[in-house]
């Protein structure tokens, strides 16, 4: 009984610690570029992609670590993606492929 209680407390602490550490970063698109080229995150962190450009963008990744497609993003719109797996994720705009972001998830 005591052991079970200890496991439960430890799990709660771990859960609480994990929740507290998850952070959300903002990456902005302007002038057909991301405002950064690389970013390192922890598993569970999120990036909010904000389109501060005059143009429509479409953020996506074909990386094995995490595939996603945020769809068409009109000027002024924001969309978030949580990175659930460790590894390197190459992010691009499908419309403007010279827009590239390297995400390292640890």
């Amino acid at each position: 009984m005591r052991a079970n209680a200890g496991v439960a407390i430890a799990a709660t602490l771990l859960f609480a610690a994990g929740t507290a550490q998850a952070e959300t970063f903002t990456v902005t698109q302007q002038g057909k570029q991301f405002d950064i080229k690389e970013i390192s995150l922890a598993v569970g962190d999120s990036i909010t992609f904000t389109n501060a450009d005059e143009y429509t963008h479409n953020i996506y990744s074909k990386s094995k670590v995490q595939k996603f497609n945020l769809g068409k993003q009109e000027p002024g719109a924001s969309d978030a993606i949580t990175f659930d797996n460790a590894g390197k994720v190459k992010v691009r705009c499908a419309i403007h492929p010279k827009m590239k972001l390297k995400v390292t998830v640890q």
């Binding site: 903002t26 902005t28 950064i36 080229k37 970013i39 002024g76």
Partner: peptide, 23 residues
């Protein structure tokens, strides 16, 4: 350091941007 951001610092909010339009 848990998180490392390379390049230009992330700007927090889009509202701070006022892109110069073509016109």
């Amino acid at each position: 350091m848990k998180k490392l951001i390379l390049g230009v610092a992330v700007t927090a909010i889009a509202a701070s941007f006022s892109p110069v339009s073509a016109a």
